[in-house]
Amino acid sequence: MSEFALVRPAEARAVDATVADDSAEQSTSRTRFVVGYLRSRPGLIVSVVWLVLLIAASVVPTLFTATDPLATVGTVRTAPSAQHIFGTDQIGRDLFTRVVYGAQLSIRAAAVAIGVGLVVGALIGLIAGYVGGWVDLVLMRIIDVLLSIPGLLLALAFVVALGFGTINVAIAVGLTSIATNARVLRSEVLKVKHSVFVEAAHAGGATPVRILFRHVLPNSVIPLLSLLALDFSGAILAISSLSFLGYGAQPPIPEWGSLISGGRDFLASAWWLTTAPGLVIVVTVLAGNRVARAFTGEGTIR
């Protein structure tokens, strides 16, 4: 019979433990993969660039325009030209500058909305999925009620309760996305909590709270995060809609929805007042959707 010596470290490395150190090779092949992936997707590049510019505009608007968004700089309602690429509005302010500064409010509001939806939704989903029983039952029936009311109507109700203003609009929009987030996370948690590695953590002496936040949450939150980009588009749209209706930023502060709302009286004579900010919203939402598609596993072999 052949020799079964006790496998000691030195020999074992030769036999089984071929954890070769190939990180350098791996990183070059990864770069090549990323380059190839992006080259075949020009739309994705454009979308990412757009969103990066937008975030830059919301942080440092002076990068893009030196004009004051509240100052009258030209004659009223001049059509787009080289000097004012989006034209000027009804009291002679530069519309491009106002759209750039409007990004500040819109993007921040979208971030708040996403944050509220994510944190509250995730918490509800996590607790409902992990604890189960009557806790799950009660939480999920509340979610069902939230889901049964149209999103915009629900947001309107929240805004009326919370009071007007951009941040309140953002919170209201965030609250409407709780339901989907909670359900997505709950279903993932239900899958993960029966994993062998979760039981292994339990057998290793981990407390329930520790299991929840160290093992269950990190392994179930990925699908939720990939929905974020989609949430972003939805939030921009919902916030602009509420602002358009007059619940958001109050004049003269520029915000995309209120810019459109302010220009609609001049639809026939000054089309750019509604069209320019409208197009910016459309492009932003499209860009967000495009990035969301990349996050949800486009191009991977299933």
């Binding site: 062998v196 590695f197 039981e199 292994a200 057998a203 290793g204 002496g205 407390t207 990190p218 392994n219």
Partner: peptide
């Protein structure tokens, strides 16, 4: 929980029993 210190377990499927993250 303190007993876990004295009794441990190794599972059948090493692909499932380790936290992938």
């Amino acid at each position: 929980r303190q007993l876990r210190r004295r009794i441990q377990v190794v599972y059948q499927n090493p692909f499932a029993s380790l936290d992938p993250r």
